[in-house]
Amino acid sequence: MDSLDSRIIDHLRINARAGYGDIGTSIGLSASAVKRRVDRLVADGVIRGFTIQVDPAVEGLSTEAYVELFCRGTVSPAELRRILSAVPEVVDAGTVTGSADAIVRIRSRDIPSLELALEKVRQAPNVDHTRSAIVLSRLIDRVHD
C-alpha cells in the first residue's frame, strides 16, 4: 500500500459512495486507475467492505452503555464471543487488559431494555458480575464521522 492507496482509503472513509472520477481528480489519478487500485485493495483484504451507517436513534436505539465484564476463572475469547453473540443489543465487544475480562458496548431502546440486555449477559454461567456506564453524550466517533 502506498500513499495514493492511503489517500483513496481516506476519501472512501469519508464517503464510501464517492465516484472513482471524483477521487481521481482529488488525488491526481484517472478514474480507471482509482478503480484498479480499489479492486486490488478489496482483493488484498485491505478494504473489507462497503457499508452504510444508520443513526441508531432513528432505529430506536438511543440508549448506549459501556459494560465491563468480569468472569469467574479463565474464559476463552471464543467462549466470550459465543456468550455475547447471543445478546442482539451487544454491538461491540473486546477482551481487555486490567481487572475486567472484556468491554462490551450495548445499544438499546431505553433503560428497561438495557437492563434486560444486561441480565442476559449476567446470566451466562462464566460471568461473575458487570460494571456499567451509560453514555450521556457522544463526543467523538471517528469510526462513523
Rank of each mutant, 00 (worst) to 15 (best):
4 L>Q: 11
9 I>E: 05
11 H>P: 05
11 H>E: 10
13 R>A: 05
20 Y>V: 09
20 Y>I: 07
21 G>P: 04
26 S>A: 12
29 L>Q: 08
31 A>Y: 00
32 S>F: 13
33 A>C: 06
33 A>P: 02
42 V>E: 10
45 G>T: 08
47 I>C: 02
48 R>F: 06
48 R>T: 15
49 G>C: 04
51 T>Q: 13
53 Q>T: 14
55 D>V: 07
58 V>H: 08
60 G>E: 01
62 S>L: 02
64 E>C: 07
64 E>F: 10
66 Y>E: 14
67 V>N: 02
67 V>E: 09
67 V>W: 01
67 V>Y: 00
70 F>C: 03
72 R>V: 14
72 R>S: 12
74 T>N: 09
74 T>F: 14
74 T>I: 13
78 A>K: 11
80 L>Q: 01
80 L>M: 07
82 R>K: 15
83 I>R: 10
87 V>M: 09
91 V>P: 02
94 G>A: 10
95 T>V: 10
98 G>V: 05
100 A>R: 01
101 D>I: 01
102 A>M: 05
103 I>K: 08
104 V>D: 07
106 I>P: 02
107 R>L: 05
111 I>N: 07
112 P>R: 03
112 P>H: 05
114 L>N: 00
116 L>R: 15
116 L>E: 12
118 L>A: 04
119 E>F: 02
122 R>G: 05
123 Q>V: 04
126 N>Y: 12
129 H>I: 01
132 S>D: 13
132 S>Y: 05
133 A>Y: 13
135 V>C: 03
140 I>C: 12
143 V>L: 12
